[in-house]
Amino acid sequence: MKQVFKRPESLSKTPFHYCPGCDHGVIHRLVAEAIDELEVKDRAIGVAPVGCSVFAYDYFDFDFNQAAHGRAPAVATGIKRTRPDGIVFTYQGDGDLAAIGTAEIIHAANRGENITVIFVNNAIYGMTGGQMAPTSLIGMKTQTSPYGRDAATAGHPIKMCEMIATLESPVYVTRVTINNPANLMKAKKAIHNAFKLQKEGKGFSFVEVVAICPTNWGKKPADSHKWLTENMLPVFPLGTFKDTTGVEKA
């Protein structure tokens, strides 16, 4: 009988510690599948962030660095410059990438480092218990915005894809989600494209995954995906903001 579903080689056997229904596990799997498909597991090097995915290195079966909060793109720069044949990627949350690590991501992108960035935007600080993130929506109630995010004092949600797409160097900037099977397949393709571009030496690729955090949103997983669809996607529209090599059409 043909086996149609198995654990990707690039995923380790460690069970995920993520909350039930959390998107991190699925996104890990998509990354692992891309690395398997491109046959680069033996030279893949990941950089784990500080956030719920701090233990990402436990779930992938290849070399990993665990970076300080927000610094993953700088660490990845150092690794890639030392190991140009490595397939180097960062995996970061919205607090990590869009708040404390804003300088690092913008400048790694602007230098056109030949790395891949997987940005998991769940509009909240998951790991620390649900504080307001730079990507939290206006009116969104969190531990540190108990009256709802007020644009007058806390500003507006930061749109990282749109910002990074204004830079000359990045070759691929795209936003996806995994709220239904069709979008999941698109996300899988986008992550594959991003790693493919790196493998071909094309340059900086950035995939934002709009994701859920059922625990800190205080919603069931299915309700969370519904809430994401109705509330997050209007603010963070899906689509490709930059594709200089035409990888999506190829």
Binding site: N65, A74, T82
Partner: peptide
């Protein structure tokens, strides 16, 4: 960033 690049390069 510089010291974190050092961290990355040194770790590689």
């Amino acid at each position: 960033s510089a010291i974190n690049m050092v961290y990355g390069a040194g770790s590689a």
